[in-house]
Simulated scan of single mutants.
Amino acid sequence: MTVTPRATIRDAKCILVVGATAGIGRALALAIHDLPSRPTVIAAGRRQERLDELAQTGDRVKTARVDLTSGRAALKQFVDEMLATYPDLDAVVLSSGIQHIFDFKQPEQKFDLDLFEDEYTTNYVATVTLIKFFLPHFLKLSEQGRPSFLMPITSGLGIVPGPWVPTYSATKAALHSLALSLNHQLKDTKVQVMEIMPPLTESELHDHQGMTPKLSKFWLPLDEFTEQTMAGLCRGDVQVCPGDTQDKWDKFEKGKIELMAVNRT
């Protein structure tokens, strides 16, 4: 990438991974735990049995339960508890996400507003809420000369939408735009924004859709995604683009961060 922050994931001492009970989040939590810098990793998610399993994978893996649909007050309590228990926490990976297929040609049968609200809340509103609650702590670290890291996981579908998952694509586009703005607003601090933009990747995300057998012929294997993503995080890439997301970035996103630096409209 063309823009590199002042620190990399190797500099983090205590890393919270929200959405670590499956798929991308789980894989990144375990890969981060294995870094030579030996950080503490807090795996957070909704499914207690998955958290219990993760707690057995390493002596520096801690766990915490969180439900991103539980509301603002509960999320504030979660953040306060994390910072009280882990005052050295200096990085957050925001991996939680859900995805539903909606068909606007059949709005009464195939567009469920309850599912839409859950998707919008989980993928965007709760993620922004957590960022807001963690930022005062990270800015204090910055004042002390310490780097910290916000790592939202967006999607290649935030660049080129998948019309079969229109609201998922929209939430990821919104989060992608927010990550660009955060990167610009925080550029004079030591708070590093490192956006992870997966392509279609091996995951449980699609199981409830009944599309896993079809998609498994095309997706990026999880181990390849993890290897490419960790390489980007260790380089300090502002935008980490594994697989074919790199092609989309090259075509539609290249130069955007630089353009924002001079954009006043």
Rank of each mutant, 00 (worst) to 15 (best):
T8R: 07
T8V: 08
T8N: 11
I9F: 06
D11S: 08
A12F: 07
K13D: 09
L16M: 05
V18N: 03
G19L: 01
A20W: 01
G23H: 05
A27E: 02
A27N: 04
A27P: 03
L28V: 02
L30P: 09
D34M: 09
L35D: 01
R38A: 11
P39L: 05
T40P: 04
I42C: 00
A44E: 01
R46L: 06
Q48V: 14
E49T: 13
A64R: 05
R65V: 11
V66Y: 00
D67E: 12
G71S: 08
A73I: 07
K76F: 09
K76C: 08
V79K: 04
V79Q: 06
D80K: 11
M82N: 03
Y86T: 05
D88W: 01
D90M: 06
S96F: 00
I98D: 03
F102R: 03
E108V: 07
F111W: 06
L113K: 11
D114W: 12
T121I: 07
T121S: 05
V128L: 15
K132W: 13
K132Q: 13
K132F: 11
H137I: 10
K140F: 09
L141C: 10
E143G: 10
Q144C: 12
G145N: 04
G145D: 04
R146N: 14
P147F: 03
L150S: 00
P152Y: 06
I153V: 07
S155H: 08
S155V: 00
L157F: 12
V160A: 06
P161G: 00
P163D: 00
V165Q: 01
K172H: 03
A173M: 05
A174W: 08
L175G: 04
H176C: 06
S177L: 09
N183M: 10
N183T: 13
Q192N: 15
V193G: 04
P199F: 02
E204S: 14
L205S: 02
L205M: 03
H206A: 05
D207Y: 11
H208D: 07
Q209H: 11
Q209L: 14
M211E: 08
M211K: 11
P213G: 07
F218T: 09
E224M: 12
E227C: 11
T229G: 12
G232E: 05
G232K: 08
P242M: 01
D244W: 05
F252I: 02
E253Q: 13
K254D: 15
G255S: 01
I257Q: 15
E258K: 14
A261I: 12
N263A: 14
R264F: 15
